[in-house]
Design a protein around this nucleic acid. Structure first.
Lengths: 237, 237
DNA sequence: ACCTGAACACCGTTCAAGT
DNA sequence: ACCTGAACACCGTTCAAGT
């Protein structure tokens, strides 16, 4: 990797630019990943990303196809942060629980990137390995292919759905449905008219403090024990 | 609403423009909704939307704040398509099942709009009314506020997660993880290397044909019966 | 009151030209 | 082989000017 003919100036690799590493797909992806984490998805532009790398925007096109290519790369970096636990002697359910929590955690740590994952098909290697592992553990536990497939879908739906609600549920909400003046953005859910929305008002304090882990576990437990009982109650459909 | 002083020319409302209705927030939202359904979210621009309405882009700003304002309007139009069933004599579970299916159907019919709903907090009136109804039915059935809150979260997570996978699961996928030439986009999941992804390859045919309703019901049933048993097994936490 | 021409500060992407 | 200046066809949004 290090060019052996290069002498002196130990910190820089050659004569490209003072102290600049060469561009690679990987370096572009990582820079974009950090940029989105820090500034949000909408702020990401080819020009600003290039500036972050000390380069002009057009240089990026020597390594990537287009912006979508970069977005796909960023998306898979989130899945790469989920480390898939080794299967100890534990049963499929606790193992799956740990994976589900690891996924929830990784996605929650990078909410700015989540919209990318949701926008289109994920075909990155990290995603595929995660999927493969989950299916394998279920198959080994005795689920048939059909059941493993459905269980996987249900679990993914739960994780994605939960992470979504961390951002998609309005804690602050406008009380006036029509055209609204500027300050309305910060009226709390609890301030909705109690006549129209009594039950929303009732649970408003719960919503405000609900992004906890046992919120997540509440649904996860139902899914895992539901799957377990299908496993126990018979091999048939 | 109809200006009484206007005479003749029954189809046009006045002298604004030949045959042009006046702009309103509602007309802008509906036009944008249809445009996104037809051409996708990324194709939506202020200029093209204005053209669709027979108007210049800047005119839109007389009625809406900015593009995000329009997006929020579009998002709530999807929820407005969910008609909330009247509560007959049925129990909370079948009623909730019907609402969940109605929501799944509305979202599935407007997949281009779904990313808007997922991108940020929903505070539209249609969304709030849906939420209020679901909470109310659960409370009436005997769930306490805490349980209703959690149940609502779990159900929403399931619906959103399911709809997501209709778009986010790769049916077609690249078999070569690194830089890939153009035609790779259309290599099927089933063509993944079987050594690395045996279980994905195994369920690939299931994935290809799985966007069925009983896929959805599989998880929904587990959630509903899980909630029912919590309701039966005691009022406490 | 509502619409618009012109303008501003941006975009993603291409391509011929540089080294 | 890799980088870039200049250019193209777009963006969202503002503002003063029109009716």
């Amino acid at each position: 990797m290090v060019q052996p003919s290069t002498v002196g100036k130990p910190s820089t690799g050659g004569r490209r630019r003072p102290g600049r590493l060469p561009l690679t797909r990987d370096r572009i992806f990582r820079a974009a990943y950090i940029f989105v984490d820090d500034h949000g998805l909408r702020a990401l532009s080819m020009r600003k990303l290039a500036a972050e790398l000390g380069v002009e925007a057009m240089s990026l096109y020597n390594h990537i196809d287009n912006k979508d290519d970069i977005l796909a790369g960023i998306g898979d970096l989130v899945f790469a942060e989920i480390d898939i636990p080794k299967r100890a002697s534990e049963s499929w359910a606790p193992w799956t629980r740990r994976v589900a929590h690891a996924a929830r955690e990784a996605l929650s740590d990078h909410t700015n990137v989540v919209p990318i994952i949701l926008a289109g098909p994920n075909r990155g290697t990290a995603y595929l390995h995660l999927m493969e592992s989950m299916l394998g553990v279920m198959r080994d536990a005795g689920f048939d292919a059909n059941m493993a497939h459905r269980g996987w879908h249900t679990l993914v739906a739960h994780v994605l759905g939960y992470v979504l609600q961390q951002t998609a549920t309005p804690i602050l909400v406008s009380a006036s449905p029509g055209r609204s003046p500027a300050p309305t953005r910060s009226i709390a859910l609890a301030d909705l008219p109690g006549d129209d929305f009594p039950h929303i008002v009732e649970i408003a304090p719960l919503l405000a403090e609900c992004r906890t882990i046992d919120e997540f576990d509440f649904g996860l437990d139902m899914i895992l024990s539901g799957l377990q009982s299908k496993l126990d109650n018979g091999p048939g459909r």
